[in-house]
Design a protein around this nucleic acid. Structure first.
Lengths: 138, 138
DNA sequence: ACTTGCTTTAGACAATGTCTATGTAGGATC
DNA sequence: GATCCTACATAGACATTGTCTAAAGCAAGT
């Protein structure tokens, strides 16, 4: 994904070693990392990167729409680099593992006007919960 | 809702002034309070109640299934006393206001087996996001 | 009323995230 | 390539939310 780096540069981003590293970490694995996990992996590549910079950079990526913020549990937010394809999440209630899923149907259409209370509804998040095969086996 | 207090007593709960107050706060208004908000209202009725007790009691009510924990934003969890009627939530992206809603359809049925990755799926949460009438007017 | 042990309390601690003041370096310009 | 301006990074204090611990308190059965 030099794609990503190019897009960011095109939006006037000043390209720094720190930002490059954060982008690489998110690209390197298609997973759902917490900010601290991103920081840990970034430090492995660039030891002097600070926590604040990771937080700032993640926040900017979210604002730019390049990364999604996911709150599947009440703990740390997770960052999902799969921002350009709409999807929902399936979470293991025991180990916290997350999978991207693509349900059929359109939940937005399932909310009648009488259930909107005057809100302008623009988005819907669906989180499925269950037990993953690993945890079920244990 | 002496109902609630009776149910709790029936389950072996030792009835204390603190627990009674927390239950009253949750019953008094059909809203979605944070733990701190519950604490503030509890203190108004029983000044010496501690933060830890409120957290403990809320946790017990959740375990007993009498109250639901809702995480609509990345901030504090909210507690929903409407635990006996399945529902989802509609959240204002600006002010955080929450409404209980009842969409049609069954999202659980919308997740094909091929999208379950071996998980045993037991539950689904749907969170609609939008702008409430108050914020839209402002 | 006594006793038992569940419950409460205050405050330390932990996890996650934000802010500030200062120093650094990207990249436009020459 | 050297200089400068300004956006960016840094360390660490601070804030918010929640958990844990040890000691004191009190509900309820006897």
């Amino acid at each position: 994904m030099s794609d990503l780096l190019e897009r960011l540069r095109g939006r006037g981003w000043r390209m720094t070693a720190q930002r490059r590293v954060v982008a690489e970490v998110l690209d390197g694995e298609h997973v759902h990392l917490t900010a601290d996990e991103v920081h840990a992996r970034a430090v492995a590549k660039l030891p002097e990167i600070s926590r604040a910079t990771v937080y700032n950079t993640l926040g900017e990526l979210v604002t730019l729409g390049e990364v999604l913020e996911v709150s599947t549990d009440q703990r740390a937010k997770r960052y999902d680099p799969n921002a350009h394809q709409p999807h929902h999440h399936l979470v293991c209630a025991q180990c916290g593992a997350i999978r991207d899923v693509h349900p059929t149907g359109n939940p937005l259409a399932d909310l009648p006007v009488t259930e909107r209370f005057g809100f302008t509804v623009s988005d819907v998040e669906v989180t499925y919960r269950g037990v993953c095969p690993n945890c079920a086996a244990a």
